[in-house]
Nucleic acid binder design. Structure first.
Lengths: 147, 147
DNA sequence: AAGTTAGTGATAATGATTATCATTTTTATT
DNA sequence: AATAAAAATGATAATCATTATCACTAACTT
């Protein structure tokens, strides 16, 4: 992969935050650096970066994919209402993985371990839950509601 | 919710297997009992059952949702290639959850803990990976490849 | 039996992501 | 530098699981 302006802008945008943005939020940032960039290009570069292991994608059905520019040994806690994703250090212990491999015969490559609930702000705010297809975070036009 | 023929047929179809089927596989089963049933009705009933806590949905971005008719204290192991989902007893310990609640301020309602890898058959079979939009399990016409 | 409520079936709409393809940009070769 | 080959881009159409809509029907209530 060539280190094009688009490529660099995508990686910089993603790494500019610890808040796990969506492709569309990244797209908006990149447009500031490369005005005519296409959303398809952003998706393409994100996929390349993921395959290279440079970034990670966090996928939840019915919600847009969120990207993590600092993949490493950590897990996530996700707000059911606003979609906020924060890092968490806890992880299931490795001895469990060996047991599972023996009992199921699967060859395990990775695990997903995520807590779900309400973030502190959402826990005290009783706005209605929003539909599957609109995250408050990193939404294209409306902008983030909080944080 | 009235216990209509459609409702009962959906629940029976889902509970007829431990293999976590998709809405479309359930739809095919239900059609055997209620010939003119609509796919929309199946989705509607599945959503109701989930909200009632009678069943659980297992969601993976880009793949169709899979349903679990026997939700309980267990977790899953997922094959990256064929989409097979099997039950696993291991779970992260509860003391970790308390620590996370204190450090993040989130109010945790549930967690997701899943191992990914290749099932025994897929580990020894080198067919190409299929696209995001076609699971081999519970695919409408083609039927399951194995199991 | 009439009236209210809930559920259904058919189909259109949704929306994030991917595929396509002609064009442009970059790299390699002469 | 000129040309050829390879890769990346931008614009847009296509995909596809799921949801929304709405007219119609079945089920309860009194």
């Amino acid at each position: 992969m060539r280190k094009t302006r688009q490529y660099q802008a995508v990686l910089e945008a993603l790494r500019s935050t610890r808040a796990h943005p969506s492709a569309e939020w990244i797209y908006d940032q990149v447009r500031g650096q490369v005005p005519g960039v296409s959303l398809a290009t952003v998706y393409r570069i994100l996929k390349t970066l993921e395959v290279e292991g440079v970034i990670a994608s966090l996928e939840y059905a019915g919600r847009r994919t969120r990207f993590d520019g600092y993949p490493g040994p950590h897990n996530h806690i996700v707000c059911l209402r606003c979609g906020a994703i924060e890092d968490v250090e806890a992880a299931p212990d490795e001895s469990t993985q060996k047991k599972i491999e023996l009992s199921t015969g699967f060859r395990v490559s990775h695990y997903r371990f995520e807590w779900f609930g309400l973030c502190p702000r959402c826990a005290t705010n009783s706005d209605p839950l929003r539909s599957k297809h609109s995250d408050s975070y990193y939404n294209s036009d409306k902008g983030a509601q909080h944080e």
